[in-house]
Amino acid sequence: MAELRTARLVLRGWREADLEPWAAMNADPEVRAYFPDVLTREQSEASVAAFQADLDERGWGWWAVEVLATGEFIGFTGLDPVDEDMPFTGVEAGWRLARPAWGYGYATEAATAALAFGFASLELPEILAVTAATNLRSQAVMRRIGMTYDPADDFDDPTVPDGPLRRSVVYRMPAERQRALGR
């Protein structure tokens, strides 16, 4: 399994000690504001098991994110194949951090590392990022990491119930753009 390091972060496999802070994050309505629901502890535990299974099986996926200087678990970042029920295919980048980790540039730093891995190690032709149209903070990260938006890609997420979170946007980063940015 690949472990990624940045100046301040480690993107690594999941540990048993990650479960409590991960479950707390997923139970936080503010962290889950752009998802239909918060998660129960059991749902959080199942997601960690699935994330680690993917990392073990293919060597990449949703990595746990740890602050290098302190060893503190702060969330997750990574790459994952787009779900089959989406109106497009490819590999998606994503991130979710605990509220105390917001505002320090960690999402941008971790996402940049995940993109670099996807292009250099997996030789992906393109990486996508998807979020609710109302999630402006996540879209700001997408722009900071060099992704571009085309309104023609907007769609109603079939996995989200009708309501304000269903309309979604797609940002894209082709490999050529990543190379042009020198990352």
Rank of each mutant, 00 (worst) to 15 (best):
Q43T: 02
D56W: 13
A180N: 10
L68I: 01
A24K: 07
F119R: 06
R32A: 11
Q52K: 10
W60I: 00
G163K: 12
D85F: 03
M142Y: 10
L55I: 14
E126F: 12
L115S: 10
V170M: 14
L165K: 04
D18L: 05
F119M: 06
P125R: 13
S138V: 01
N26K: 01
E45D: 02
A116L: 11
A17N: 09
A113C: 08
E45C: 02
T40C: 08
R143S: 07
P36S: 10
T148M: 12
L97H: 07
R179T: 13
P21D: 07
T134P: 03
M25H: 00
E42M: 02
G61R: 11
R32Y: 06
A133K: 03
E20F: 00
P87H: 14
V65G: 03
A46Q: 09
A7V: 12
R179Y: 08
V38N: 08
A140C: 08
A129N: 06
L165G: 04
S47I: 08
W14Y: 01
D37M: 09
E126I: 13
P164V: 11
P29Q: 01
S47V: 03
P81C: 02
Q178N: 15
G146Y: 03
Q52W: 00
P81N: 03
L124D: 07
A23Q: 05
Y171Q: 13
P174Y: 04
L4R: 05
Q52I: 06
Q178K: 14
A132D: 04
S121R: 15
D83W: 07
G71S: 10
P36G: 08
E176G: 05
E92T: 05
L68C: 02
F117S: 07
P125C: 08
Y34R: 13
A98K: 06
T134R: 09
A140K: 12
A140W: 03
A46F: 10
R172K: 15
P29K: 01
A113E: 02
D157Q: 09
W22N: 14
R96G: 09
P81S: 03
G59L: 00
A101W: 12
W60R: 09
L136W: 01
L79A: 15
G78R: 15
F119K: 06
P161Q: 09
W62I: 07
R15H: 07
L39G: 01
V67N: 04
M86V: 03
L165H: 04
A129K: 08
A129S: 15
R166T: 05
T108Q: 15
I145K: 03
G78Q: 14
P81T: 01
P161N: 11
L124Y: 07
E126Y: 14
F35V: 08
V31H: 08
L68E: 02
T40H: 07
E123A: 13
V10K: 12
R166D: 02
T112V: 01
P100M: 04
V10Q: 05
A33G: 08
N135G: 04
P158N: 08
P174F: 07
V91N: 12
A27V: 04
V65C: 05
